[in-house]
């Protein structure tokens, strides 16, 4: 083998992923080539070293031994004892006075802060009420406009309906008037004919009365 195998080929060789024939070739080359032998030896060294880290297991969480636990319990009890002793000691009176003074000061500050808070709250409530009222008025105005428009619409509709009814009645009256007038004309014509006929009869009667005297 004239050329050196590539590192990729050596990786297949080292991890047994090459074909038996290729493995044999590389093995032969390794036997002859000191340079490759040195390189492969380096890689093998890394591989061997990696085996030092065997399957990792999680370590046990730290658990105190029984003696340690008893010691911790004793320390807690001791601490409690010291605390009780300090509370009942004469120096405690001075501490209580200081505590009472601090408490009074804190109460005063708290009362002042509460008053300030109440004032601010009332002011904010008034502002909110104003805003709400203005909004309500705006809303009522809008509602009123809406209602007015609806009423006008209803009135218009009613007016149109009334107008139609009135026109229909007028038309009917006109028709009746025309019929009546026609009837009247007929009566008048008839009456006129009657009068003409009566006058002619009167004229004839007058003529008859005059003829015997002649």
């Amino acid at each position: 083998m004239k050329t050196h195998p590539t590192p990729e080929e050596w990786m297949s060789f080292l991890y047994g992923e090459d074909s038996p024939a290729r493995h044999a070739e590389l093995g032969a080359h390794l036997h002859q080539c000191a340079e490759c032998r040195g390189q492969v030896q380096t890689w093998r060294g890394g591989m061997t070293a990696l085996d030092a880290w065997t399957e990792p297991q999680p370590r046990r969480r730290w658990a105190p031994a029984p003696a340690v636990r008893w010691a911790a319990a004793a320390a807690v009890i001791l601490g409690l004892g010291i605390g009780v002793g300090r509370i009942t000691s004469p120096a405690q009176a001075e501490m209580q006075q200081l505590t009472a003074a601090l408490r009074a000061e804190m109460d005063t500050k708290l009362a002042s802060a509460r008053e300030e808070f109440d004032r601010t709250l009332q002011q904010q409530q008034a502002e909110v009420a104003e805003v709400v009222q203005a909004a309500a008025i705006d809303a009522a105005g809008e509602e009123l406009e809406h209602l007015s428009a609806r009423i006008a619409n209803v009135i218009n509709q009613r007016r149109e309906a009334d107008q139609e009814t009135y026109l229909a009645a007028l038309k009917q009256m006109e028709e009746r008037y025309a019929t009546l007038r026609q009837d009247l004309d007929t009566v008048a014509v008839n009456a006129d004919d009657g009068l003409s006929q009566a006058r002619e009869q009167l004229i004839e009667l007058a003529a008859i009365k005059q003829s015997p005297s002649n």
């Binding site: 380096t42 890689w43 890394g46």
Partner: peptide, 9 residues
């Protein structure tokens, strides 16, 4: 892998 083994070595 070859580079890693070199570094580890």
């Amino acid at each position: 892998m070859s580079e890693a083994l070199s570094q580890l070595s």
